[in-house]
Design a protein around this nucleic acid. Structure first.
Lengths: 251, 251
DNA sequence: TATAAACTATGACGCAACGTCAAAGTCAAG
DNA sequence: CTTGACTTTGACGTTGCGTCATAGTTTATA
């Protein structure tokens, strides 16, 4: 199927001016030029535009997109797989950002202080993971785990040791949660241990603590269907269970 | 706690040049100026910067951010709630985009044609939902359901009627899946009915059909832990169940 | 104490990716 | 045929910084 410029623009949700600009810089030429001078785009151009817009979604500069797409070894299928990974990473960062806002809200409502560095968790920045989104560059493999972890630690206002301890705590917390869930009693010593571990985990983000704020945060986990689903992926029912455990922990 | 310019920039993951620019345009003034002429930022500025970066995350222009933040009735708690909603919507759009890429990959691998309009599902565009992200403007309430649905239908290359049928089909598919899951047999007529409904659902995105492509897509749902969690939120085990049902459907 | 490197300031130029507008040709419907 | 919608090219402008130069201030080390 063929499209005139506004038709393709409407299809893709961009402006015709953008398409003319892409033509001018050689990024996306029309399939052919009609005898009346109008640009005509076909199926190949549609697929190319999809690629371009996926790269733009990740803020890749047009010049770089042009290099990628016009390389002799460009492979659409490989590119699509890379888009998938980049989008998935981006979604992960958004989840982190959402959790940061949730922690901020809980701290605010609970009348406690949140650590300054924690307020920017997940923001766009030159995190090494951010660079990993630039297609196929396995940054961790390139730089090694140590450099990546050092960078992450710095961003969290932690020393390397503290960061590793935090990672260990996260793992322990999840394991404890699962075991407590299997027991099935939100008031059990194991479940209460999980709440205590979660409190310790929050110590990386809040410079003070209140049970009110803690409970509010866990309530928000449950209220957000995607977060609930995420925690439930650890083991089904985890989010609700943690909330029930927290209710007892806070008495 | 107080920060010099680079300290705050590092904390927030932005450049000092950005902070100077924000100072110059009056968006974010330092808390005070040291006797040596250096900018000094405090807790209030940290909180303000968090707000600014959250708005920037959603591509809100600086001038608009300034109006919002400097309005007499600006309420930080309300703003944080609005950020939460905007981020959640953005994450939803990313999920849609991920699914679009998945459908594209499956169609490519299955050697079938995908509809052109479907290739741009979820892309940034002037969707009315996109406008809804601009803080507290309840677009659906403002314009009404009919206008929103018409807009969505147009974007999907559907008439209003077709769009509504598609929505109905989605609901029926989910309901059928849940009932089939309760039966517990992936080969049951009900489970096979669900697969048939999913095939019909895909008709809005693929101009042709192949079982290979269909199976590949459902496999991808299961392989993405977040999508798996999303489908499992309908009812735990839904994603895996659909995959098992599809294996029988494709024989 | 002196020195050099790192940090801070201001000013200014430049850039990417379009948005907006003007002027003129083409198309389609009444 | 007329008019409004669509297309073209060309050009100016905008936003949000990045980059660089120059000069003052701070910090760590010998």
């Amino acid at each position: 199927m063929e499209y005139k410029i506004q038709e393709l623009a409407d299809l893709a949700g961009i402006s015709s001016r953008t398409l003319r600009y892409y033509d001018k810089i050689g990024l996306l030429k029309p399939g052919r030029i009609h005898s009346n001078g109008y640009r005509v785009y076909g199926g190949a151009e549609v697929d190319l535009l999809q690629q371009i817009l996926l790269y733009r979604e990740m803020d890749v500069p047009l010049e770089e997109i042009s290099k990628i797409l016009h390389a002799p070894n460009f492979d659409r299928k490989v590119a699509l797989q890379n888009h998938l990974r980049a989008l998935s990473d981006h979604r992960d960062r958004l989840n982190l950002l959402i959790e940061t806002v949730q922690k901020t809200i809980s701290a605010e409502k609970g009348g406690i202080l949140m650590k300054d560095h924690a307020k920017f968790e997940g923001m766009k920045k030159n995190m090494i993971e951010e660079n990993e989104k630039k297609y196929g560059k396995e940054t961790r493999a390139h730089f090694g785990d140590k450099v990546v972890n050092e960078s992450n630690a710095k961003l969290m206002g932690l020393t390397q040791k503290q960061f590793e301890d935090h990672e260990t705590l996260t793992t322990l917390l999840n394991q404890t949660l699962v075991r407590a869930l299997e027991e099935g009693d939100p008031g059990s010593p194991l479940a209460q241990k999980a709440c205590e571990l979660h409190k310790q985990w929050l110590g990386s983000f809040w410079s003070e603590y209140s049970k009110e704020a803690h409970l509010g945060l866990v309530q928000m986990y449950v209220d957000d269907s995607r977060f609930k689903a995420y925690y439930d992926a650890i083991a089904p029912g985890t989010a609700e269970f943690l909330l029930e455990a927290m209710k007892r922990y806070c008495q």
